[in-house]
Amino acid sequence: MEQSTTYGHFYGNPFNGRIQDCHDCEHAEYQKVKYSRLALLQIMKKMQDNIAQNKEVFSNALLLGNTFYNITYFGNARIFYEGKINGYGLDTYSRTDCYWATYYYKKALAAAITDEQKAKCYYLLAKCERNEFYAKKYEKAYTKK
Score class of each variant (00 low, 15 high):
K106V: 12
A112G: 03
F74K: 00
Q31F: 11
F74L: 10
Y103G: 03
A52V: 14
F58V: 07
Y105Q: 05
C25R: 02
Q20E: 08
L38A: 12
Y88M: 06
I51L: 05
T72M: 06
K32C: 14
Y81R: 06
G17P: 06
R18G: 01
K46D: 03
N54I: 12
I79R: 09
G8F: 01
A101G: 12
T114V: 11
M47R: 11
G89N: 08
D115H: 12
C22F: 07
N70G: 03
Y99H: 10
L40P: 07
Y69K: 10
I19L: 15
K55N: 08
A28R: 13
L41N: 15
Y104Q: 00
F15G: 11
N76Q: 08
R78E: 04
Y30V: 15
W100P: 13
N60P: 04
N60I: 02
Y88D: 08
C25F: 08
Q117L: 07
V57S: 13
Y103H: 09
D91I: 15
E26C: 09
I85H: 03
A28S: 15
F80Y: 05
T102Q: 12
T72I: 12
Q117M: 06
P14M: 04
T92P: 06
L90P: 14
G89Y: 06
N60R: 00
M47F: 03
Y69P: 03
N66C: 12
R18K: 14
Y93S: 00
T96C: 14
M44S: 13
Y103V: 11
G87N: 14
